[in-house]
Design a protein around this nucleic acid. Structure first.
Length: 420
DNA sequence: TCTGGGGTCCTAGGACCC
DNA sequence: TCTGGGGTCCTAGGACCC
């Protein structure tokens, strides 16, 4: 089996640069939600040692000194480009699994021309660059984990090998693994790394040489599988069809701290509405609802509280979900404290078709018609056209900041670029 | 002053059962 | 003084990913 994974280089930045020539060859940082941290950087920004996840307020000086360009995240644009590059991969593969916003696993079918996997991978990179405009790297290997490591190696060796690495060859694997630290292996985070180091396991070669039972004792079954996969034994398969969603969350940091209950409830109501909308789009109902609010996690004695409730019968009706969520917010709120973030989680999701009704109360047959109409209106005229009074109206001070957002170049008629 | 959001999976430990 | 054995299920919390 040949596993392949392609990832887009500096995806958010590359997407921003695509329609904005001013971002070429200059340092650029794309910011997280609420314009908080660096989440994507141009090569020029990396050269200035802008670190991933670094908060903007700590870089103000550097940003001014080097004239670093800033952009807010533009998820509409990234989602559309994701759709486009996956369409190109689909033309070059027989199985495709979208793994994240900027990565997809796929399988390369044999080419009639007799070209090898590596040559096919180079062709795919060229095709994505030509038709979508995004630079990519591709990793190949006999297991999912090995292709992922190959992809990381392709990134590190791009100047030498041109952005494609194939780890099928055992000798090559042994050579490269001796130089590759375990922290850079997919699935090895800080905790397992800290436990492995005292055992003398520092490189990927050391990790691969670990008996699987030891890996399990040191970590969990996850680490054991990882070790087996590093040695070429598949422990996971393709998931071409997305699995059903198990839970969903809508959470946001505030643009400005919230100290009063009505504002907090309004924010929670907006998130609850959106969460219900998300599960309706997938024909799901929720059995568990959680609402939370907390203050800055960088300050001592910040407030932090959550409440959860069982929804019976399971539902996706925003009238129920918003009412319960705002009710719980009233219960968790502490007067006189500053909240910086709140959110709503819907869990234990199941298909509408299989959900059980209430034994003692007949469901209102008009409810589903109402929600179909509401979703139709919002789909046609834009999210938030119609909602509940509890959500409040218009923009608020606590809304998430997105001060440097680029236009919806590819998904809104009024924003389409004009060529002269 | 200012620090993202949304997922999945696993384990430990408690509650409960016979 | 001395108090069994073997399960399942649920939840909270932690770890990982992008």
């Amino acid at each position: 089996m040949t596993w392949a994974i392609v990832d887009v280089a500096n995806f958010y930045f590359s997407a921003e640069r695509l329609f904005d020539p001013a971002l070429r060859n200059v340092p650029v940082i794309v910011l997280s939600n609420n314009d908080g941290c660096a989440v994507s950087r141009s090569e020029e920004a990396k050269a200035l040692h802008v670190r991933m996840g670094e908060p903007v307020f700590k870089m103000r000086d550097m940003i001014r000194r080097h004239g670093i360009q800033l952009r807010s995240s533009n998820y509409e644009l990234y989602a559309d480009l994701n759709r486009r590059f996956n369409a190109v991969i689909a033309e070059h593969s027989d199985i495709l699994e979208i793994y994240s916003i900027d990565e997809s696993f796929f399988r390369l079918p044999p080419l009639p021309s007799g070209l090898g996997d590596v040559a096919s991978a180079h062709r795919l990179r060229a095709a994505i660059l030509r038709s979508v405009g995004l630079p990519t790297r591709i990793g190949l290997g006999p297991t999912r984990t090995l292709s992922k490591v190959a992809n990381a190696l392709a990134k590190a060796t791009e100047k030498i090998w041109g952005g494609v690495v194939d780890l099928h060859d055992l000798a090559l694997r042994e050579r490269l693994f001796r130089e590759w630290p375990i922290e850079d292996v997919w699935g090895v985070g800080r905790a397992p790394a800290a436990k492995l180091r005292p055992l003398g396991v520092r490189t990927t070669a050391d990790l691969a040489a670990l008996p699987p039972s030891v890996a399990r004792d040191v970590g969990t079954v996850v680490l054991e599988r990882l070790v087996r996969e590093l040695n070429g034994t598949e422990c996971d398969d393709f998931h071409p069809e997305p699995e059903a969603l198990k839970g969903t969350a809508v959470t946001r940091s505030f643009g400005a701290p919230v100290t009063d209950l009505p504002s907090l409830q309004e924010a929670v109501a907006r998130h609850a509405w959106r969460a219900a909308e998300k599960i309706r789009a997938q024909q799901l109902v929720a059995t568990r609802l959680i609402a939370f609010a907390h203050g800055s996690r960088f300050k001592a004695n910040s407030p932090s509280a959550s409440r959860s409730v069982r929804l019976s019968p399971a539902t996706n009706d925003p009238r129920i979900i918003v009412a319960r969520a705002t009710g719980m917010t009233g219960a968790l709120f502490e007067p006189g404290r500053a909240y910086t973030k709140c959110g709503v989680l819907l869990e234990e999701l199941g298909p509408v078709a299989a959900s059980q009704g209430d034994l003692f109360a007949a469901a209102d047959p008009r409810a589903s018609d109402l929600l179909v109409a509401v979703d139709g209106i919002n789909a046609r005229f834009g999210r938030g056209t119609i909602g509940l009074a509890a959500q409040g109206l218009g923009a608020r001070e606590f809304d998430t900041k997105r001060s440097q957002k680029s236009p919806a170049w590819t998904t809104r008629l009024s924003d389409i670029p004009v060529a002269r």
